[in-house]
């Protein structure tokens, strides 16, 4: 091995590569390859979590999942909530990061405060948030009454629009990771660019919007990727806050599969739903990879 650059150029390191990849292959083999095979097998059964006494039901589970209006809504919600998170990250997250970066007083503390909801366990944040939504004594409605804006009070989980609004507020709280990316990347921007812009008389807002926003193009991509991945993995955010209310209208694929898996003899059904969600998730990763690859 390693007998000079020239010698190595034409040669393949296949065997070494295999050795280096063994740990990765262990995880992939077990938790992806085997797992997906298992899902494919179970998805055609009616069975409980003990996996005994399985009854073969053919492709029934797939047909039932695909025709369930609740499942379709869950998939659409997952995409919609991902969209909300991305928008929040690119606007609120970006602006917060820029403002903090101007060196306001107490910026370290401010930074910590904006990151806090994203860094504590989601189950914890969502639980606290969920009980703030109570109509009568909930913290949000009480706050709106206290600051003289009673018109903002909502029956949060009582109608569809308010339910979505509640989820949107929750998602905006969770933009810590994008803030981290933006504050981190903005330091690499050339000082003289900003200096000359200020000399030319550009306003602060203009500098943020017309100059920094385009300059941080690559950060936006990272942010979109990470938020998108996070959204597809979301489960606790909804499970512990709205619980899918009102009437299941805010449920997502995560809560849908979880509920199915814990149902009575519905593990095969959950497996079918899992496979459909996996295909969607893999397609999204694939599309994302194609897009980013073009720019490499």
């Amino acid at each position: 091995m390693g007998s000079g650059v020239e010698a190595r150029k034409g040669r393949s390191d296949g065997l070494v590569a295999l050795l280096f990849l063994i740990p990765l292959l262990f995880f992939y083999g077990l938790y992806y390859l085997y797992a997906f095979g298992f899902l494919a097998q179970v998805s055609r059964q009616r069975v409980s979590l003990t996996f005994v006494n399985a009854v073969n039901v053919g492709w029934d589970n797939f047909r039932l999942v695909a025709t369930d209006p609740l499942f379709r809504r869950s998939v659409l919600n997952t995409l919609l909530f991902a969209g909300i998170s991305i928008c929040a990250a690119l606007t609120v997250g970006f602006l917060l990061a820029m403002m903090i970066s101007t060196g306001v007083r107490g910026r370290k503390l401010l930074y910590g405060i904006f990151l806090l909801p994203s860094l504590i366990p989601l189950s914890l944040f969502a639980t606290v948030f969920g009980q703030m939504l109570e109509t009568k004594d909930g913290a949000f409605n009480s706050l709106f009454r206290a600051v003289g804006l009673p018109g903002l009070q909502q029956d949060w989980l009582g109608n569809t629009g308010s339910g979505y609004a509640a989820v949107a507020i929750l998602l905006v709280y969770l933009i810590g990771l994008p803030i981290m990316y933006y504050t981190s990347d903005v330091t690499s921007i050339n000082l003289s660019l900003i200096e000359s812009a200020t000399i030319d008389g550009a306003g602060t807002w203009q500098i943020f919007r017309l100059m920094l926003f385009p300059l941080l193009r690559n950060t936006h991509k990272t942010v979109i990727l990470s938020v998108l991945l996070g959204s597809f993995r979301a489960f606790d955010v909804i499970f512990f806050s709205t619980g899918g209310q009102p009437g299941g209208r805010t449920s997502i694929t995560g809560t849908y599969i979880y509920n199915a898996a814990l149902g009575n003899d519905r593990v095969g059904y959950a497996a079918a739903a899992s496979l459909i969600v996996l295909v969607i998730a893999l397609l999204i990763s694939f599309g994302q990879l194609l897009l980013t690859r073009k720019d490499r």
């Binding site: 899918g244 009102p246 009437g247 509920n259 199915a260």
Partner: peptide, 15 residues
């Protein structure tokens, strides 16, 4: 019927 209750019935009544 627990799963029917939590997935369908309860939500329908709430609707």
């Amino acid at each position: 019927q627990q799963d029917f209750l939590t997935q369908v019935e309860g939500n329908s009544i709430l609707d």
